[in-house]
């Protein structure tokens, strides 16, 4: 069991040769292949990473786009709802306005008709009363009555205010002291003289007085001096009766109108309350 020198050296050489041979045949080649494979795998992993990243980015982009579209859709729907709501309100308002207008028009027309009817009634009633009184007076009128009328007229002429008297005097002067006395019936001679005298006294000058009769007058006397007229007659009372009647009717009518207006206001208030109720309803639905 001693070391054989030749074998020792030979084995060293053998070993070195074996190392070189194996390095050439085995290690280098296998390591190269393995490294290459590892590189390939690394490359593939990297590629996969890149692709994954790309896919993730794309997915994120699509997600973003989808979100945007959803947002847009929601916006569109809400806008459409809002517009529909506005349109509905507008249409309702329009319809209400239309109804109000029609109602107002109708009321106005009713009012007008009523007024016309009342006016007509008033006129007819006045006429009727006037006509009745006129006929009664016509039937009653005679010379005695005429006499009474003339005397009353003359008294009245004297009782006129100073200003009015002056105005009549002025008118007499302008008409060259001419005056006309109108009456329904012919005034008797003695009354004519009395009247002429009274007028002359009134004016203080000589006045030519003409006596005329007129069918239009109902038991009354009229003094015409150019542009002035002093009259007394039953006509005046009748006219004032007509006027009074008209006034009474007006009052009645205005009262009725007031009542009507109050009713209208009450109705409008009711309507306002109803509208409020309507306004509340959709809110209730939302909650």
């Amino acid at each position: 069991m001693s070391i054989d020198l030749f074998t020792f050296v030979a084995q060293i050489i053998n070993f070195i040769i074996l190392v070189l041979l194996l390095r050439h045949f085995l290690y280098k080649r296998i390591i190269r292949v393995m490294d290459e494979r590892e590189k390939n795998i690394a490359r593939r992993i990297e590629e996969a990473e890149t692709k994954k990243k790309g896919a993730e980015e794309e997915a994120a982009a699509y997600q973003k786009k989808k979100n945007e579209l959803e947002e847009k859709g929601r916006d569109l729907i809400s806008r459409a709802q809002r517009e529909a709501e506005d349109r509905k309100k507008e249409l309702l308002q329009k319809a209400r306005d239309e109804v109000d207008r029609t109602q107002k028009h109708w009321r106005e027309s009713l009012q007008r008709q009523k007024e016309m009817f009342l006016h007509d009634l008033r006129r007819r009633a006045g006429e009727q009363v006037f006509e009745t009184a006129k006929r009664a007076l016509k039937d009653l009128a005679d010379e005695n009555l005429e006499k009474q009328i003339v005397e009353t007229f003359l008294q009245r002429l004297l009782k006129l205010g100073d200003e009015e008297k002056q105005m009549i005097r002025d008118s007499l002067e302008r008409s060259d002291q001419e005056a006309v006395i109108l009456s329904r019936f012919k005034i008797p001679e003695n009354l004519r003289d009395k009247a002429e005298k009274a007028i002359k006294d009134f004016s203080g000058r000589d006045v030519r007085v003409q006596f005329k009769t007129s069918e239009d007058l109902i038991g009354g006397v009229e003094l015409d001096v150019r542009d002035r007229k002093v009259a007394w007659g039953i006509d005046v009372y009748l006219e004032s009766l007509e006027e009074n009647m008209a006034v009474a009717f007006e009052q009645k009518v205005s009262e009725e109108e007031k009542d009507q207006e109050e009713e209208n206001i009450a109705a409008e208030e009711d309507e306002g309350a109803r509208k409020k109720e309507e306004g509340k309803e959709p809110r209730k639905k939302k909650t």
Binding site: Q11, N14, R29
Partner: peptide, 24 residues
């Protein structure tokens, strides 16, 4: 001297190289 050690070493070497060659 060509003794058994050297000869069998060559044999092992040859076998290893053969296997390597086959593998690569």
């Amino acid at each position: 001297t060509l003794n058994a050690t050297i000869v069998f070493t060559w044999g092992v070497m040859g076998l290893l190289v053969l296997i390597s060659w086959l593998a690569t």
